[in-house]
Design a protein around this nucleic acid. Sequence first.
DNA 1: TAGGATTCTGGAAGCGTTTGCACACGAGAA
DNA 2: TTCTCGTGTGCAAACGCTTCCAGAATCCTA
Lengths: 340, 340
Amino acid sequence: MSGIEDVATLAGVSKATVSRALSGRGYVSAETRTRVSAAAATLGYVVSSSASSLVTGRTNNVGVIIPEINQWFFGSIIEGVERALLDRGYDLMLYNTSKTVEERSRVFEYFLVRKRVDAVIAVTLEITAPEAERLLSLGKPIAGIGGPLVGIPTLSIDDVEAARLATEHLLLLGHRAIVHVGGDIDEQMDFHVHSKRLRGYREAIEAAGISYDPESHVATPFDIPGGYRVGKQLLGDPRRRPTAVFAACDEVGIGVILAARELGLSVPEDLSVIGIDDHPLSEMFGLTSIGQRPDLQGEQAVDWVIRQLEEPGWTPPSKHTFVPARLVIRSSTAPPRRVG
Amino acid sequence: MSGIEDVATLAGVSKATVSRALSGRGYVSAETRTRVSAAAATLGYVVSSSASSLVTGRTNNVGVIIPEINQWFFGSIIEGVERALLDRGYDLMLYNTSKTVEERSRVFEYFLVRKRVDAVIAVTLEITAPEAERLLSLGKPIAGIGGPLVGIPTLSIDDVEAARLATEHLLLLGHRAIVHVGGDIDEQMDFHVHSKRLRGYREAIEAAGISYDPESHVATPFDIPGGYRVGKQLLGDPRRRPTAVFAACDEVGIGVILAARELGLSVPEDLSVIGIDDHPLSEMFGLTSIGQRPDLQGEQAVDWVIRQLEEPGWTPPSKHTFVPARLVIRSSTAPPRRVG
DNA sequence: TAGGATTCTGGAAGCGTTTGCACACGAGAA
DNA sequence: TTCTCGTGTGCAAACGCTTCCAGAATCCTA
């Protein structure tokens, strides 16, 4: 485990020059630089990040707080963030927190409190204004996926718009009896995604002259079994059965499709289904969807925080950024069967 | 941003005492300790981990190298590792590497080269003996999930045994025409899981007096679409159709079930299916499986490395550890239909 | 009551870097 | 020729902790 001193001796220069040569800061002649690099290589030298951090005040780590790992949306974000971070020479510290308010704030305090990261990326984490201010006042850039969040640059798809798009697709096909299978709007987490998607749905059907019936919204967990259970229940009763379902995410949509099949209904003949996400499984199920790219959202968030760190004076967008979501039409949506 | 000096002044003691009081090392009177804690609290003081690391030589980070995130098995490992690490006061640095040999070794070098982690947990990463030795010689504990790996403590389920168990379950039900849908055994990654599971299958059927037919093993990617495609192909031809499928993982098994349903076959009447993993979706599909708990494997790996770090003299198991896998019987397996 | 053991505290020496400052040198400008 | 100015290098002072060592106070034990 050789230190900078050894390299300096071997290269016949001072520690200061070694530091400058290796970090690329300050003046070093080309000749010296190659000599130092060679010495470092032969000794297998590598700077001690603790020593370096101590003096520079930078850790080269960025913290990522995420409520969930084993779900496509979150997993993809992590992938995108990790890739972008490593490309730029930063390491990723992962903090998995549940969505409960208590744990959220515990992690938050934990973060604030430790001098281990240069920046933080908060995924689907509602940070209060004072918390944000405190973090910002520490000089740590922060970006959020989800939002909006006051004082913090955030990004996400436009949930209202995505829901409207999905619903309009169904309306355009001629559906009138459309049920929205979404989340529980009393769950205050996730920046009210649930209520936003519900709103988009509602606005779309009302714009089409259909009055909103609270019965046409049913809540379920955001996974395949969640969609399946609701599907079974909803489609089991022929009198209540809609001609189309707008699922708030593809997993739920897939669950609904599976339930429909099991009940002997064909998709899209007896039932159209649309989701949001463009999940990798959706293609297999022919599920029409509003696609988004969580990995790119992760990359974007990384870009924001790193630029703040590296480009003095640069500031990220001051308001929430909407990333694009586009309709991917597959075989799960079609005009409703004409029932005479 | 207050330092230890400020706390010392406020508490009316020396820096040395503050350090001792806060870290719990060395003698400090109870009275002093509370006074110091109070001072630290009012100032919002928190030790600088770089400064601390610089003198102690510990970073309190552990690196996790993992080839994949968005897959249940890997995601669960990360969850388990993260939980265990945070419980013990360590932070998790995540490195997502693909399975290609080049990238594997690049990450490996990267790791070796940087003094940023106290230990590493390598998931499904085949480290060569010299690499392992080099890592160990740096005094960094390392543990692997997957394996075995010489010189490194590793753990995994017994793939041969799990495959045998699954196949025997089918044999016991009376099946003779059993196809194994697994991975490509030429993929050298993952410690040959593919060939091990194939071996377990083969040993089981041969023990039952059935001769092994290479046609009865078909390879496909380890995901639902992979199983689906193979299922469609395999079950489409009634003459080739087996009475049972042993899928090398549950995702594949689910894909096969979906394919079967689509072809109008009922499971388990027309086809029995068994998988490995006990994936969260398996319950919904009634998939019989050999269950494993990747999260617990992650916790175990953490325990190994942390104990090495904290209990001088403690050494992890010198050979590979098999973790339990148990048969979970659901509705996808039954005796074959009697075809008279 | 002496003397060793135990508990408590402070001073100061690092830990391995980065960087401000001083200085030396050669080149171009005045 | 003298003066700047841009380069290239070294010295030494931080950076914010932990821990060794020594000394003081208290407590037992003989």
